[in-house]
Amino acid sequence: MHKVRITLFLLMAAAILVLALIAGPRMINPLAMSATEREILLSIRLPRVAVALLMGMALGASGAILQGVLRNPLADPYILGISSGASLAAALGLLSGFYVFGRSSVPVSAFIGASLVSVLVGAFGWKRGGLWPERLLLAGIGLNFLFSAVLMLLMSLSSDEGLRRAVLWMFGDLSMADWTLIPSASIFIVIGLGIALFRSKALNALILGDEFAYSLGFAVQRERLILFAAMALMTSASVSLGGTIGFIGLLMPHIVRLLLGADSRLLVPASAIAGGAFLCFADLVGRSLMPPLELPSGTVTAVIGAPYFLYLLRKKDVLGV
């Protein structure tokens, strides 16, 4: 029965991927393309879908990992302040005209910002030789508030142009996606995913609690640190690709748990796939709803995600309460 569900799940994800490439706002028939359409497909749609796929995978997997590591079903990579830290770094880069890496300067600063915040959260969550879930959560929330405030301060002091660009960046902009950043981001995301997949058993054990994880023979603090680092790496890469797009990390693990169960060995990769498909879908909707106006994907994920999340809360099994 499980196999049937998994197959259906994969088929649906694949279908969404293909649809994202071919559909909206204008349908492109890959078997009968004009030169312009081929140009659009290869130069605009393909990198865009690739970015959406990568980001969605990174965020979905990160959400699954974090909900396990923090033992909290409401955990999302952004709850730890990674998004506001990245936005702050990106805004600083935009406003100060940081151009060392050329066009990739903003993504690089976002990546650096996200990574720095992750380290900070880890540092604040560290006590007596280990990372503690409650401390991590509180540290993340605190830092989130701090960076958001600094960001708002910065924005109120900045020029209109810089402001506009910073805000647009934060909304999650996939419209300018191109191939430049994809290779390096892919490497980080693949590494993060790989680490998480290899440590799925440890993640399962951590979910049972530190004592049982220890009893089952895991080095609890080390596993937690490694998984946290994998999550941070993937989230940083995702943020550098296309800004902050919420709800994927929060929602995908819950959906996958309902469909395929809570075992991390399945949950992490399936959340990644679900996230990738979902973001491709959201991007498709965002650019097809009111063409040529493009709704930021982050908005679409929130509009779809939030009500669905609230609906999920009404189902008992989600939280076990």
């Binding site: 605009i44 063409p291 040529p292």
Partner: peptide, 12 residues
Amino acid sequence: GGLSNPSLEAIV
């Protein structure tokens, strides 16, 4: 599209 977010696809 808009000023700060014109649609590449539409233009092409």
